[in-house]
C-alpha cells in the first residue's frame, strides 16, 4: 500500500486522536503551570446614615469582581510555575509530618494526594495476583467441565465483567450496607456488631473483592482460550515420563500461558491504576480516594460553582508519571514483537 493511500485510510482516526487526545494532553500540561482567576478590585464606598447635626459617613472598602462591558466577570490567566504542583503535593506539610512532633505516616495520609496515591498503588498491586490466580483457576475448572455445561458457565461468568462498573460496585454495596444480608451473616458468625462502611479498611476490602469479581472473568476467558491450544503431544509425553498433575501444570501449561499471563497483568495494571468507579459506587470519598477520583473531584464544580482546573491539571500530570512507568514494559514488549515479526 502506498503511503498516500495509507494516510487516506488512517486519516480520520489519526485526526480524531490528535484533536481529542494529544491536543488535550498538551493543554493539560500547559494548564498545570497556569492559574485562571477572576479579577477583583477594591472599591471604597462612602456610606452615610442620617444623623444630627451632620450625616454620619463611613468609608468602607469592599472587594468586587471586575465586570467587562457586557456585564460578564473578567478572568485573568497567569503563569505560576510550579505553584499548583506545590499546592497539590504540599511539601511543607510532608516535612512537617516527618519532623519531630509530627506523627509521620498517619499525618501524611491526611493530605489528599498521598492518601489517593497510597490507595491506588496498594489496590493495583494487591488485586493483580488475585485476578490472575482466580482467572486461571476458573479457566482450569471450566476446561474440565462437561461439554454441555460450558456455554451456560461461560455465560454466568461473563456477567460480572460485562456489567456497568458503577452498578457492579453498587450491587456489592447493597449486600453489605446497614444490616444487609451479608453483614447480618458476618455478624452471626463473629458475634460482633459490624458496620462495613464506617471505616476505611473494610471499604477497601469490599473494593478489592469487587475488582477481582469484575476482572477475573476477563482473565478467565483469555486463559481458557489459550488452554485449548496447549500442545497435547507435550502433555502426553509428560504423562509417559510420569509427571504428576501438578508438575504438568507447572512445567507444561503455565509456560504455555506465560505470554498471556503477562498480557493480562499489563492490561490489569493499566486499568487498575485508573481505579475510579469503585469510589463512586461505594461512596467512599470520606475514607478512601484514588488519584483519578481526585482529578474528578477537582473538576466537579464546588458550592460556588468553580472548578479547580489548574489543580486538576497538576494532579493529572502527576498521575501520568505512574502511567508512563507502567507502560515501559508493555512498550518494550510490543517493540520486541515488532522487530521479531519483521524479520
Amino acid at each position: 500500500m502506498k503511503t498516500k493511500t495509507f494516510i487516506m485510510f488512517v486519516g480520520p482516526s489519526v485526526f480524531l486522536m490528535f484533536l481529542f487526545i494529544a491536543a488535550p494532553l498538551v493543554s493539560v500540561f500547559l494548564q498545570s503551570f497556569q492559574v485562571t482567576q477572576g479579577v477583583f478590585e477594591e472599591v471604597i464606598e462612602t456610606k452615610c446614615t442620617p444623623g444630627f447635626p451632620a450625616q454620619i459617613c463611613t468609608e468602607e472598602a469592599s472587594v468586587r469582581r471586575v465586570l467587562d462591558d457586557d456585564g460578564n466577570p473578567v478572568s485573568q490567566t497567569s503563569w505560576v510555575g510550579l505553584d499548583t504542583y506545590r499546592t497539590v503535593l504540599d511539601p511543607d506539610a510532608v516535612s512537617a509530618a516527618f519532623d519531630e512532633g509530627g506523627s509521620g505516616w498517619s499525618q501524611l495520609m491526611t493530605i489528599d494526594f498521598y492518601k489517593a496515591l497510597r490507595f491506588t498503588l496498594t489496590f493495583t498491586l494487591i488485586t493483580l495476583p488475585l485476578v490472575i490466580g482466580t482467572g486461571l483457576a476458573i479457566a482450569l475448572a471450566v476446561n474440565r467441565c462437561v461439554e454441555s455445561l460450558k456455554g451456560p458457565v461461560i455465560f454466568v461468568s461473563l456477567l460480572p465483567f460485562i456489567i456497568t462498573p458503577v452498578i457492579g460496585a453498587l450491587s456489592i454495596r447493597w449486600l453489605f450496607i446497614g444490616d444487609g444480608i451479608m453483614t447480618a451473616l458476618l455478624e452471626n458468625w463473629t458475634g460482633q456488631d459490624i458496620a462495613m462502611f464506617a471505616q476505611g479498611w473494610t471499604i477497601e476490602l469490599l473494593m478489592l473483592f469487587y475488582r477481582v469479581w469484575h476482572v477475573a472473568p476477563f482473565a478467565f476467558v483469555i486463559f481458557y482460550a489459550a488452554l485449548q491450544t496447549v500442545n497435547q503431544d507435550t502433555l502426553e509425553s509428560a504423562i509417559i515420563d510420569g509427571a504428576s498433575r501438578w508438575q504438568r501444570l507447572k512445567y507444561v501449561v503455565i509456560p504455555h500461558l506465560m505470554p498471556l499471563i503477562i498480557f493480562v497483568a499489563l492490561i490489569h495494571l493499566m486499568d487498575c491504576y485508573r481505579v475510579f468507579e469503585e469510589i463512586i459506587g461505594f461512596s467512599s470519598q470520606a475514607h478512601v480516594i484514588s488519584l483519578q477520583w481526585l482529578t474528578f473531584d477537582y473538576l466537579t464544580p464546588d458550592d460556588s460553582g468553580n472548578r479547580a482546573i489548574s489543580r486538576a491539571a497538576a494532579n493529572s500530570m502527576l498521575t501520568m508519571i505512574g502511567i508512563v512507568i507502567l507502560l515501559i514494559p508493555l512498550l518494550r514488549r510490543t517493540y520486541r514483537d515488532h522487530k521479531n515479526s519483521s524479520h
Partner: peptide, 26 residues
C-alpha cells in the same frame, strides 16, 4: 509509520480519562 501509530495508540489507551476531560472542560 504504522508501527509508531500503533505505539501512540497504546500510550493513549493507558491514559486516565480524567486527564483528557481536564483538557476538554475549559
Amino acid at each position: 509509520l504504522a508501527f509508531w501509530l500503533l505505539i501512540m495508540a497504546l500510550i493513549f489507551r493507558a491514559l486516565p480519562h480524567s486527564v483528557l476531560v481536564t483538557g476538554y472542560l475549559p
